[in-house]
Design a protein around this nucleic acid. Sequence first.
DNA 1: AACTCAAACTATATGCGATAAACTCAAGCC
DNA 2: GGCTTGAGTTTATCGCATATAGTTTGAGTT
Lengths: 230, 230
Amino acid sequence: MPAEPPLIWTLPPPPPRQRALGRDEIVAAAIALADEGAAVTMKSVAARLGPYTSMALYRYVHSREGLSDLMLDTAVAEVPVPAAPSGDWRADLRALAFDTRRMLGRHPWCALLAHTRPPAGPHLMRRLEFMLAVLTGRGATLPDAMTYAALIDRHVLGSGVQEAEEARHEPTGEAFTEALASVRDLAAADPAVPLLTAWLTNPAGPPRDAQFDLGLGFLLDGIESRLPAR
Amino acid sequence: MPAEPPLIWTLPPPPPRQRALGRDEIVAAAIALADEGAAVTMKSVAARLGPYTSMALYRYVHSREGLSDLMLDTAVAEVPVPAAPSGDWRADLRALAFDTRRMLGRHPWCALLAHTRPPAGPHLMRRLEFMLAVLTGRGATLPDAMTYAALIDRHVLGSGVQEAEEARHEPTGEAFTEALASVRDLAAADPAVPLLTAWLTNPAGPPRDAQFDLGLGFLLDGIESRLPAR
DNA sequence: AACTCAAACTATATGCGATAAACTCAAGCC
DNA sequence: GGCTTGAGTTTATCGCATATAGTTTGAGTT
């Protein structure tokens, strides 16, 4: 027998509708979810904002892809970009690289996204503009500056993606140790990969930041060698 | 009224069933689809193999993720890996990097996949082992060798992802030109990004291969400077 | 020649995710 | 008071992965 629908009088009064979502709140909610490692779906974002449905978001962000692009640019906005080069091109680029890296640490999902989306957001553009200004200010041609900037960002984003991947698996020592062990066993079973096996048995190496700085230094050295003499 | 089911006699005789799928055929079909830029779904892969359903694949590849991992390792298997270092560490690493780059050119989907999946396949392992052998053979410690190898792969994969992204949009001059124009207009509308606007108006620069080689050279130079003296 | 059985597929159903189209509902306006 | 408009909701598809349960088939057995 179908249950009698409850009388309206027994039900709580409807909550006051909170109207007027906005792009900013939506993007902030999506970023918060992504930072927590939760899946970002239209539904989960809407739910986080209150008693909304996924369809409510479309008015503001147009599509899922639009939301992704907004998330990316909003995260990049956290990277401090000086108004003008300081005069020390190397320090400028290094600081920007590290600041970006720190942002990627706060928003690990960002690295992959940056790889997949065109760099068309306003904050992405201003960040790139600064790199170009620093390099051309030191004498590079515009095409060369673009090449160098791409090189550096490759390093920054590549590190970001890799570390995000690693972090995604590490937190729980349980499954992680097991996964590592299974890869190690796989390697150990193949006599063709002794060095890899040795490393997996005792994975050592400089800390991440040092590795990052090392590679960045290599790139900056290379760029410096091709800049016009002072 | 529900249509009368047709009598079996009016239907064509069943086609002879081709049995025995196999992991290799499945992975090859998936790679072929991906190379063509088509979506790789269980269904599309099965259909490409004949009159199969998506479920037929699960026996062989376990899951969608399993299929991805097999695709990745199979593609990496195309990269020729010498049995042993030649004695010229720099030439060895450079050749491996360029061979990998060529493979990524044939399989553009591979770069992103390599970024997202653990490098546990047998061919991925052997490729890495070779890099480690080259670097330790020249005097690097194992942890350092791992750091350097990661640096190089970051560059190789990063270039691969970027060029794959670019290629995905270029083929059709129609929409691409339009998209480029809209980004340029966006930049032009922001007075804060004159250099970027200038570049977008006239995107120039060395050819891709030269840019790749430039960055690779920077990294190899840097590595060289930290290798023990001969 | 009929029978059995496991391997190889198919059918069916569930659930998630994105999104189009149509609908509702409250304010403000004439 | 009826009309418009903005802001969400409902409903309905569609694509995709995949669990579970069936079905077919062909190689061997008796």
